[in-house]
Amino acid sequence: MQRRHLIAGGLAAAALPSFTFAQNLEKQKVTIAVGGKNLFYYLPLTIAEQLGYFKDEGLDVTIVDFAGGSRALQAVVGGSADVVSGAFEHTIAMQLKGQPMRAFVLQGAAPQIVLGVNPKTMPDFKSVADLKGKKIGVTAPGSSTNIVANFVLAKAGLKPTDVSFVGVGAGNGAVAAMRSGQIDAISNLDPVITLLARSGDLKIVSDTRKMDEAEKVFGGPMPAGCLYAPQGFLDKNPNTAQALVNAMVRADKWIHQAGGGDVIKVVPESYLLGDRAIYIDGFLAAKQATSADGSFPARGPQTALNALASIDPKIAAAKGKVDLSAIYTNDFVKKANLKYPKG
């Protein structure tokens, strides 16, 4: 009888740390909004979900997928989601709107967004200036794919109003829009880009999957996919935020150690768009642009502000009012790296 009590007591003690940890979370159920979850841009989110990293931290995470990052942001603003997995630059625009958002763990060290033209509708393409009056497909209007396209257009002397932007999503719809000639160019991400390029349905013009090209395009390190949330959420739920970051840092590190074969064993079959070999190629192309440890580069926020100011007169006019220290923090990431030094 005594021995049975000792065993039961030992089991209860063994279970205690995880129970206590979960109890310390201010909010165990968290909803994350994302725009195009199948994209490599958001791969750390999928890895953290599929490998159970969120559960390891005591979290019950629901991920809601939208057609683009701007719609994911709307879900958090509207209160139907807690956190956005989306583009870093949205934090700048939201601060200027008086709705402060803060990024708290990085997924992408570069935007991974590729602008390319349709060889069928633009066989004589010579420069970005040729896109004037053309239709450009983006994941959703106002999303990071739209913002990067605007930036590349501006460098060629074109305004956003000089083209027509069409929301085509981030999957088979985007591929079909290019192949059918509904759009003349596309700003999108992998695996869509690799699929189109391999089939001859895309001529690449600007490729920010490459770290050196991204730095050249933006004039510095350009932080991309990240988790960001209203400042109020982080203030009320610091332990929950830390748990989210712990999971994402582990996912970032897993990706940097993984090969293409490892990734296709983890992601849902639907992500592969019917071609495993092309998915692996897309992963290898995008891998260098994922964050190694979740940290935001010191010069990144200023690069993002400069990029937005160059294409948005309102942001340019208010540039001096932006408090860059308020749009991101590395505090949670530092703790996560101490907890998981090797992932």
Rank of each mutant, 00 (worst) to 15 (best):
L196K: 07
A243S: 05
A258R: 11
K210C: 01
I255E: 14
P230I: 01
A224R: 01
V175W: 10
D212Q: 13
C226Q: 02
A214N: 07
P223L: 01
V245S: 03
R198Y: 02
S187D: 05
K210A: 12
H256K: 14
D190L: 05
I264D: 12
W254Q: 09
I255S: 07
K236W: 01
P221Y: 02
I204N: 04
M211I: 15
S199W: 08
E215Y: 04
P238N: 03
F233K: 02
L195G: 06
K210L: 08
P221S: 11
K265H: 10
T208Y: 00
A185C: 07
K265W: 10
G259F: 05
M222S: 04
Q231D: 14
P223C: 00
D252H: 03
R198F: 01
A185L: 06
F233L: 02
C226M: 02
K265V: 09
M248E: 14
Q231P: 01
L202M: 13
N246V: 01
V249D: 09
R198W: 00
G181T: 07
I264Q: 09
A258D: 13
T194C: 01
D201Q: 11
A241Y: 02
L202H: 07
V245Q: 08
A229Q: 12
A258K: 09
L202T: 10
D262F: 00
M178W: 13
S199K: 12
L202K: 08
C226A: 12
Q242Y: 05
V205F: 05
L202V: 10
V217M: 11
A197C: 01
V263H: 12
A224F: 03
V266H: 12
V266R: 08
R209Q: 14
R250M: 13
P191Q: 06
M178Q: 12
G259N: 14
N188P: 10
L195C: 02
K253E: 05
T240F: 03
K253C: 06
G219H: 10
K216R: 15
S180C: 10
P230V: 04
E213D: 13
D212C: 01
M178T: 12
A243D: 08
G225M: 02
V192W: 09
G225E: 14
K236D: 12
D252A: 07
A224C: 06
P230K: 14
V266M: 08
V192T: 15
M222Q: 13
H256M: 09
R179D: 15
L234Y: 07
L227E: 04
G259E: 15
R179T: 13
A247Y: 10
S206K: 10
L234G: 06
S187M: 06
M222W: 08
G232V: 09
W254Y: 15
L244M: 13
R198N: 15
V266K: 12
K236M: 00
I255F: 03
H256T: 03
F218C: 04
L234T: 08
P191N: 06
F233W: 10
A258H: 12
F218H: 09
V245W: 04
W254R: 11
G181K: 09
L189V: 15
A176F: 13
G225V: 03
